[in-house]
Write a protein that binds this DNA or RNA. Structure first.
Lengths: 157, 157
DNA sequence: CCGCTATAGTTGCAGATGAAACTAAATCTC
DNA sequence: GAGATTTAGTTTCATCTGCAACTATAGCGG
């Protein structure tokens, strides 16, 4: 189909990684600006707060697993949240390498604020989609996720 | 529905911006590592090369529009590509502010290599999805995109 | 024409990022 | 139970990023 010197046609708009990246960045920015404006939280901070609020007490490593962020990012987000008094940190009695995270008083207050906003944002986004579309989207994302894991093992061409 | 002190349940895994972000980052990383390994190209550089290859000659501003990257990012990507000899830059005869971009000889060679890899990657990802799912996914992304634009105008809550 | 505003593109700066080195504590091995 | 290995988390460094300031050119109004 392609002679040696003819490069096949290629449209960025139709390239999945590109579309994914553009839309995701727009969503993230819109999302981040609200949390930044209301509570001065970055996305990594927001995520840490969300999982600590839901699963405390837990270790930084556990936060990594649940948020899919690397440990450096988590470490820095935690450090700032502790400095701001939103999170408390205590050494695990059994394993002194581990530092268990939990919400402080202020953290509880903020958590109670961020969850409703998250639900509202999700609802607004989901509002653009039918229930079918939403679950189809989530499902497609799961499949892509699995596929990428394979890709990493089996480089193409 | 929620008494004053009860924060509603919230699962990150089900939160659209989060899922989007995690999957996209994984896809981008997998994607970027290939182009980095094979040609030493970053994602911004890759994108610039892709649109210049398809639409040359064009201005940096035109590249911005087509890639959805901001002008600083484009400027820096272009600078590096020019330094490496992949891109040529000449002032527009009619408007001396504009610098028209085109592929250099080496750029043409690289372009001929990156497009097939892009098609292969897209095919691999799409392979995880049925044709239906793929178009559903792209369509859902378009809707989200439109929705985010609205969101920015009408802050919720 | 002359000054005012707008546009193309670059650069400076301050904050975010990830890889790799590092510290401290636990665990395994002989 | 002393040394080697692994694991939790932090720090360092080099790079990337975006905003805002800047330069250069164009176009507009009088």
């Amino acid at each position: 189909m392609t002679s040696p010197e003819t490069t096949p046609a290629f449209d960025l708009e139709d390239f999945l990684p590109y579309r994914l990246s553009v839309v995701t960045n727009r969503v993230s920015r819109a999302f981040a600006s609200r949390y930044e404006a209301a509570w001065g939280l970055s996305i990594p901070e927001w995520r840490v707060l969300a999982v600590v609020g839901a699963f405390a007490p837990l270790s930084a490593a556990a936060v990594c697993e649940r948020t899919a962020m690397d440990k450096v990012k988590v470490s820095r987000a935690v450090a700032r949240l502790v400095r701001r008094g939103l999170l408390t940190r205590r050494r695990d009695a059994g394993d002194h390498r581990v530092r268990l995270l939990a919400l402080g008083d202020e953290g509880r207050r903020v958590y109670a604020g961020i969850v409703p906003l998250a639900l509202a944002i999700d609802a607004a986004l989901t509002g653009a989609l039918s229930q079918r579309e939403r679950s189809g989207l989530l499902q497609a994302l799961d499949k892509l996720d699995a596929c990428v894991a394979d890709l990493d093992d089996t480089p193409p061409a």
